[in-house]
Write a protein that binds this DNA or RNA. Structure first.
Length: 554
RNA sequence: UGCCUGAUAGUAUAAUGGUAGUACGACGGUUUUUGGUACCGUUUGUCUAGGUUCGAAUCCUGGUCGGGCAACCA
């Protein structure tokens, strides 16, 4: 079954390591989010990469929360992250927290002080920044850099014991103030923060920085391949240096290009702003690029995994077309979504030769892509139908395969009708369309011999139910809001949400289930919103169908 | 004006010194009781200038362009 697929550069590294017998061929990756926001589609790429790699090479993946900054992290985020990873279809080997290692990390810092490789600095943040120099000028040492090991040990212990206020002192690695890599100019290892931590409470008032937590956590867990995004490339020398000096497990860091996607933003900071400033309903607003937003919008886990598979993994900066994500969800839903009929913008059609008051029950299959139609449902029919306003034109152009006086179409799963006349109101708006039907053209039993080009959807007026339907468009007006002048929020699309309060839906849709995708024939894929109730159905449009006619019209 | 990193159709991604391929997009066609799906076809590319080599997207040198780095963020 496995047609050969070329490996991405990380898979190549892993295969080389396995072939060389490194770590006995063991593969252990980790997904290390900071619990300071909800996961987005960019995280999905990382999740699929880390978990996918482990799965492919008989390894495991840890879920590790990088919770070293208590002022930004909350349990709400921990919970949402776990839910999203699970929903995407992945199981972690262990649920771990950097905060589990605070004691361990403290000991490692002490070890570094003892080796003369770390010192307590009393300078202010501004002084430290100034003393670091610039990319073209080396930094300058201060008097604290030459503190004795004993003094450093005592000071660090006092820091831990809460004898100082926030900002009074920091622990710094003593590396090279003239390094061309700014990160190596005596980076901070610990800072004082008298803040409540979501897991350790008030047990600590000093917290390790990323650079003195991440690699060490990897080593503690004996992670074999620590995969992160490109912005950490310049951190790698530090990552390796600490591991080497501490003589702990030699985890290795590899970097890939993060995902960027057109017409959206992909940073927790920006997504957070959209939420807190109420530009969207919340982290799971269906227009958001968050996993929870996509889920609420109707995207399936399988479609997101497929997307992550298709975009590939490389080191080059990229900008993926949103249309690729749309392709992936259409491909999935086409094969699974049940077909139903709904009229979003209604106009009434009256069939003049069908007895008033008569109804009959027609049948429609659930999904023509599935052998046998995947079952079906009953569809009530009568002489009054709702049809889509755009399916009728007073003066139809050539190749308009829908209705206009004298034109014929098939009503999906029902009869062929011929448009005879229509009525307009005082403002010139078409209000009713009059048709005659061909009794011999009943779907499945057509002996009329008539062939029509167009088929339209419809809902019987007396049997119709109603629902609110929410149509979504791209959140931003421009491809890359982050690269535009000024605030990215200036480029929000004001028409990204359109609410249709009263859409006519076929009766069977009252049985729609949460989490299931439905195709409203010719209109797109829809799913029940989380706010939907039996009394008030609310559908979200996941994505439109491809519309070749719209393209032709121009 | 420092260091790191990258550059292949519109967008992504392969080709690991030996025929530049695949997917999405776009365009055209066939089928169709969804102007959907499916199927078929067309289209467009190795940043640049040198060098090594029988042969370079691949190796070397210079340039150009993009991204990252000077948070008590991760």
């Amino acid at each position: 079954m496995s047609e050969e697929r070329s490996l991405n550069f990380i898979e190549e590294i892993v295969e080389e390591d396995i072939a060389a017998g490194k770590h006995g061929g063991r593969v252990l990756t980790r997904f290390p989010p900071e619990p300071n926001g909800y996961l987005h589609i960019g995280h999905a790429k990382s999740i699929c990469l880390n978990f996918g790699l482990a799965k492919k090479y008989n390894g495991k993946t840890n879920l590790r929360f990088d919770d070293t900054n208590p002022t930004k992290e909350e349990t709400e985020y921990v919970d949402s992250i776990k839910e999203d990873v699970k929903w995407l279809g992945f199981d972690w080997a262990e649920e771990l927290y950097a905060s589990d290692y605070f004691d361990n990390l403290y000991d490692l810092a002490v070890e570094l002080i003892k080796k003369g490789l770390a010192y307590v600095d009393d300078s202010t943040a501004e002084e430290i920044a100034a003393q670091k120099g610039t990319p073209t000028e080396p930094g300058t040492p201060n008097q604290y850099r030459s503190r004795s090991v004993e003094e450093n040990l005592q000071q660090f212990a006092d820091m831990k014991d809460g004898k100082y206020q926030d900002g009074d002192k920091v622990l710094r690695a003593k590396i090279d103030l003239a390094s061309p890599n700014m990160l190596l100019r005596d980076p901070l290892m610990y800072r004082i923060k008298h803040a409540h931590h979501h897991r350790t409470g008030d047990a600590w008032c000093i917290y390790p920085m990323y650079d003195f937590a991440h690699g060490q956590s990897d080593a503690i867990e004996e992670i074999t391949h620590s995969i992160c995004t490109l912005e950490f490339v310049s951190h790698r020398p530090l990552y390796d240096l600490f591991i080497e000096e501490l003589e702990i497990f030699p985890s290795k860091q590899y970097e890939f290009a993060r995902l960027n996607m057109t017409y959206t933003v992909m940073s927790k900071r920006k997504l957070m702003q959209l939420v807190s400033e109420n530009h969207v309903e919340g982290w799971d607003d269906p227009r958001m690029s968050t996993i929870s937003g996509l889920r609420r919008r109707g995207y399936t886990a399988a479609s997101i995994r497929e997307f992550c598979d298709r975009i590939g993994v490389a080191k080059r900066e990229n900008m993926i077309d949103f249309s690729l994500l749309e392709f992936c969800i259409r491909e999935d839903l086409n094969k699974t979504a049940w077909r139903r009929m709904a009229v979003l913008d209604p106009i009434k059609m009256i069939i003049t030769n069908y007895p008033e008051g008569q109804t009959e029950t027609l049948h429609g299959e659930n999904n023509p892509e599935v052998e046998g139609g995947d079952g079906g449902r009953d569809i009530p029919f009568s002489n009054e139908l709702w049809i889509e306003r755009e399916d009728f034109m007073e003066e139809p152009p050539k190749k308009f395969f829908r209705l206009g006086v004298g034109l014929m179409v098939r009503l999906k799963n029902a009869y062929i009708v011929k448009c005879e006349d229509f009525k307009k109101d005082a403002d010139g708006n078409v209000t009713e369309i009059y048709c005659t039907y061909i009794p011999e053209s009943k779907s499945g039993h057509d002996t009329s011999g008539i062939h029509v080009k167009g088929t339209i959807h419809w809902v019987s007026v007396p049997h119709a139910k109603t629902a609110e339907v929410r149509l979504y468009d791209r959140l931003f007006k421009v491809e890359d809001p982050s690269s535009e002048e000024g605030d990215f929020k200036e480029y929000l699309n004001p028409d990204s949400l359109q609410i249709l309060p009263n859409v006519y839906i076929e009766a069977d849709l009252a049985n729609a289930e949460q989490g299931k995708g439905y195709q409203f024939i010719r209109k797109g894929y829809f799913t029940l919103d989380k706010l939907s109730t039996a009394d008030k159905l609310v559908f979200n449009r996941t994505v439109t169908l491809k519309d070749g006619w719209a393209v032709k019209k121009g």
